[in-house]
Write a protein that binds this DNA or RNA. Structure first.
Length: 310
DNA sequence: TAGGCGTGGCG
DNA sequence: TCGCCAAGCCT
């Protein structure tokens, strides 16, 4: 199956800017952004990001508020904060260069097993076992014969991935990237394109008659959750040109026109606040969300006013 | 270890 | 339309 996947990857890999000619920093930034966020939404933000902050050093000097604004609506803004913290560690402990070993990478804030392996492999050509959701799904189908991998990554999956990894470092990098791309483009979670799969003849899942998943993946509730309120609050803070008084949030939750509550804010802020309308949120929920943002370092509180961290 | 954490495209 | 789910990490 190796030659089929490698050939397919050579001929079908997407032309993404963090592939080919790209600095280790650019690859690291891409990996952080791509965690749980689709390529189409990452790419434009990544382009702007790299043009503005081409090295860890220049990025480390930026303020968290600017970092969070540039992160825009990629989601999970704590990733941006951790990337900023990582840049500072890179400057202070690694002379401004992205470290090359798995262990050093793993020690950086917000970098776990996947990202450490991916950067070591894709930025530095090392033989590391890269296991992401795409690779897990391809392995589950192609080798195990199941529709989906286990709910959580387990030791058996890691052992299988290590076992499958080609010995040659260069080939292992292509294998990691190729299997990941196969999972992203062909062996997708829903409606896999088995007809055009380069390894369909060797697929254990197809051989087994494409059995259905043995468990139902848990959905992620959204409407009415704290997460929705956090997201809306972050949108307000990103757009705000000055600190937002808690009463301004409150006014909107209670249905009072935000413009009459506080005229010192821009139309942009007002627009963002309107997202609270129809949310049917309870005031304690908003207070909880705002407190959570402060606790996570995503917001600062001073004189009952919230702002992005300076 | 299971749950929390954003956002929006797409089938 | 609306639920699924997308190159995870941390606690």
């Amino acid at each position: 199956m190796y030659q089929e996947v490698l050939k397919w990857f050579r001929e079908n890999a997407r032309d993404l800017p963090w592939r080919g000619q790209c600095s280790p920093w650019g690859i690291l930034v891409s990996e952080i952004m791509l965690a749980q966020t689709p390529v189409v939404r990452v790419q434009p933000v990544w382009e702007r990001w790299m043009a503005r902050w081409p090295t860890p050093s220049v990025f480390a000097q930026e303020s968290p508020a600017e970092v969070l604004r540039a992160w825009d609506r990629l989601g999970y803004p704590r990733r941006a904060l951790r990337l900023h913290a990582t840049a500072n560690v890179i400057v202070q402990k690694h002379g401004g260069d992205v470290p090359e070993t798995f262990e050093e990478l793993l020690a950086l804030p917000g970098i776990g097993n996947y990202t450490a392996a991916a950067v070591a492999a894709f930025a530095f050509g090392q033989r590391e076992t890269v296991v992401d959701t795409n690779i897990r799904r391809v392995h589950a189908r192609l080798v195990i014969g199941q529709a989906l991998p286990a709910p959580a990554l387990n030791a058996a999956e890691m052992a299988l991935a290590k076992d499958l990894l080609p010995v040659d470092p260069s080939e292992s990098v292509q294998w990691n990237a190729g299997v990941m791309e196969l999972g992203a483009l062909i062996c997708t979670a829903r409606n896999p394109k088995c007809e055009t799969c380069p390894v369909r003849d060797q697929c254990a899942w197809i051989a087994a008659g494409q059995p259905a998943p043995t468990y139902i993946p848990k959905g992620q509730p959204w409407a009415g959750t704290d997460r929705q309120v956090r997201g809306a609050a972050m949108a307000v803070l990103r757009a705000a040109k000055s600190p937002v008084h808690v009463d301004l949030f409150w006014a909107n939750v209670t249905g009072i026109d935000p413009e009459s509550a506080d005229t010192a804010h821009t139309a942009e802020v007002t627009s963002a606040l309107r997202k609270f309308h129809g949310l049917n949120t309870k005031a304690p929920q908003l207070q909880r969300a705002l407190a959570g943002l402060v606790a996570d370092g995503l917001a600062e509180l001073e004189n009952k006013s919230y702002s992005l961290p300076r």
